[in-house]
């Protein structure tokens, strides 16, 4: 046994997201360590049936959970990032995009689609954390903007599922401006009197929290998600103290008045569908 043991979980891509992990019969719960039978885990919306831990999952899973019979029509699936600034850090941004597309099978950190939820038409946009930390660049901003336009066209509610570290540094000021762009587009959705459901999942931080994720008519979160503006590491460095347990969790954010409610993933569809039908 090691002398020192990490008490809290590190932030990293989870089993469910790592496409290169072969699909085994069993998965281990990240939180309680229970071995979970994979088929049962999937049936339970990727929630540990022992401790309730919500595995991080991507757009494919959310679409299949929320859209009736898992049927949906995706738009602008082929939209990809453009390296406008010829950005280079330890790697070229263009190479990073290419490698990520290859590794994840996704074209960007955001997808949007239309379909029905409990029989009612709806537009859902969802992020994939496995794509450069779900970071928001021009593609995400444009897809959210178009998703909002689609909802206005269909006169349907707009559901946004956030799961992101924040703005994408490699698109610098362009990605910063996506915060303004998405918020500006939301004024048009609001003007049209259409409901906006913002679902915050683990993790939702940075520029995403500081724009559309916090602007829902209904701000909804999954249990135990990390939700905040500044990341916990930065705050710890700033104040030079350890953070209290439970800081920046969904429960903390709800207690401080910024969430309407917290709902487990397997009850989310019912809860949102119910609200939608009341607002019709």
């Amino acid at each position: 046994m090691a002398w020192f043991k990490r008490k809290e979980a590190n932030i990293s891509a989870t089993e469910a997201e790592k496409k290169d992990t072969p699909d085994g019969l069993w998965s281990k719960c990240e939180k309680c360590g229970t071995m979970l039978y994979r088929r049962q885990l999937v049936e339970n919306s990727h929630i540990c049936y022992k401790c309730g831990y919500h595995f991080r999952v991507g757009s494919e899973v959310y679409f299949s959970i929320l859209f009736d019979n898992g049927n949906y029509e995706e738009f602008d699936a082929g939209m990809i990032s453009k390296d406008m600034l010829s950005f280079v850090d330890t790697k070229k941004y263009s190479d990073r995009i290419r490698a990520t597309i290859k590794k994840t099978g996704l074209n960007d950190a955001c997808r949007y689609a239309t379909g029905t939820l409990n029989g009612q038409p709806v537009v859902i946009a969802c992020m994939d954390f496995s794509f450069i930390g779900g970071s928001m660049g021009s593609v995400m901003g444009e897809k959210i903007a178009r998703g909002i336009d689609k909802a206005r066209e269909l006169k349907s509610p707009f559901i946004m599922i956030s799961k992101s570290g924040g703005a994408r540094m490699m698109e610098a000021t362009f990605s910063l401006m996506q915060m303004a762009k998405t918020s500006a587009k939301l004024t048009q959705l609001s003007e049209a009197g259409l409901p906006y459901f913002s679902v915050l999942t683990d993790p939702t931080t940075g520029g995403v929290t500081a724009s559309f994720a916090m602007l829902g008519d209904f701000n909804i979160a999954e249990p135990g998600a990390l939700i905040g503006f500044a990341g916990p590491r930065v705050i710890r460095q700033t104040i030079g103290k350890d953070l209290p347990p439970g800081f920046q969790t969904s429960e903390f954010v709800q207690d401080h008045g910024f969430l309407d409610f917290i709902v487990p993933r397997n009850e989310m569809k019912e809860k949102i569908g119910n609200l939608m039908s009341m607002l019709k």
Binding site: F212, A213, L215, G228
Partner: peptide
């Protein structure tokens, strides 16, 4: 990026202004 700023909703405050 402080503790109280998070408690009082730094993200929401900025988001609201953009909107």
């Amino acid at each position: 990026p402080g503790l109280e700023a998070e408690e009082r909703g730094q993200g929401e405050a900025i988001a609201r202004n953009l909107f």
